[in-house]
């Protein structure tokens, strides 16, 4: 075997800076996927196990108490788009929250990454790509389970993948931007879990139509990516009656939230890396 000294060519011939400039985001995503592979049993357990528990307890359990159809379909079919969007949001959020603290505070690996040709925005994009890969994979496995339960049909698979991915992207982008500001965990995610995720899950028309929620709580749904995504999912999967203008509002809201999140996270990321 040759030694380092014998094979040395030098970066000037070895490294073309244009390659990482184009593909840097993907290299970051690769690293994240490698990290995820170390935790896959936990990721699968939380990503799938949690919603499946809901499926049984709420969908099947409470569903059996509901005699008539909800919104013209079985309760499980009504519930499915919300459960999928929730699972997607949770998966994507996990990938932009703790890894971001790890990158800036615990291991500070972002600084090592940034000392190569990789830029801050590329790290952001790579993290987001990895988060979306996890969200999409979670949704696909979950959809398989829902298919087995007869909660959704094959035609609904792609539309529901679309609606839940939009929710994941929008929510993760904003969470990402918030996380970049954090100096240390300090129970921040517990607060987010209790005061953002849980109310969002409860009051976004998840378990019953948003119109049935007391009017003074309906605003939670209006600003919740979960409601917008769930409504899109219901319209596209079983043809729930959603006005055309409202569909535009739903997509518009999610896209605006995603763009807003990215616009917020990029400059903060660059600033924190150069500090």
């Amino acid at each position: 075997m040759q030694t380092l000294q014998e094979t040395w060519q030098g970066a000037a011939t070895l490294v073309d800076p244009a390659v990482p400039q184009r593909w840097g985001f993907w290299y970051v995503a690769e690293t994240r996927l490698r990290n995820m592979s170390k935790w896959w049993p936990a990721i699968v357990a939380f990503g799938i196990g949690n919603p499946v528990l809901y499926l049984f307890s709420v969908g099947v359990g409470i569903g059996s108490l509901i005699s008539g159809p909800v919104d013209g379909v079985s309760y499980l079919t009504f519930l499915a788009p919300a459960l999928l969007a929730t699972a997607a949001i949770q998966a994507a959020m996990d990938e932009v929250s703790f890894p971001t603290i790890e990158g800036f505070v615990w291991d500070k690996t972002f600084f090592a990454t940034n000392s190569t040709g990789i830029t801050g925005p590329q790290i952001v994009n790579g993290m987001m790509v990895a988060a979306m890969i996890r969200a999409v994979a979670t949704v696909l496995i979950y959809e398989l389970i829902l298919l087995m339960f007869g909660a959704i049909t094959m035609d609904a698979v792609l539309p529901l993948l679309l609606s839940s991915s939009f929710a994941a992207l929008a929510f993760a982008a904003v969470m990402f931007a918030v996380t970049v500001k954090i100096k240390d965990d300090d129970g921040f995610f517990a607060i987010i879990g209790r005061f953002v995720i849980t109310p969002m899950f409860m009051f976004s028309g998840t378990f019953y139509p948003l119109e049935n929620t007391p009017i003074y709580l309906q605003w939670i749904g209006w600003i919740s990516p979960l409601w917008h995504s769930t409504d899109i999912g219901r319209a596209l999967s079983y043809g729930a009656d959603v006005d055309g203008w409202l569909m535009i509002v739903h997509f518009g809201f999610l896209i605006a939230m995603a763009i807003g999140g990215f616009a917020w996270v990029y400059p903060q990321f660059i600033k924190r890396l150069s500090a």
């Binding site: 000037a12 490294v15 400039q21 170390k38 090592a112 000392s115």
Partner: peptide, 20 residues
């Protein structure tokens, strides 16, 4: 980024990924 692609950096703290 162009310059960094041709540099090697050994930071004061090691900044290694503990999960890998």
């Amino acid at each position: 980024p162009e310059i960094r692609a041709h540099l090697g950096v050994v930071p004061q703290q090691d900044l290694v990924d503990r999960e890998l």
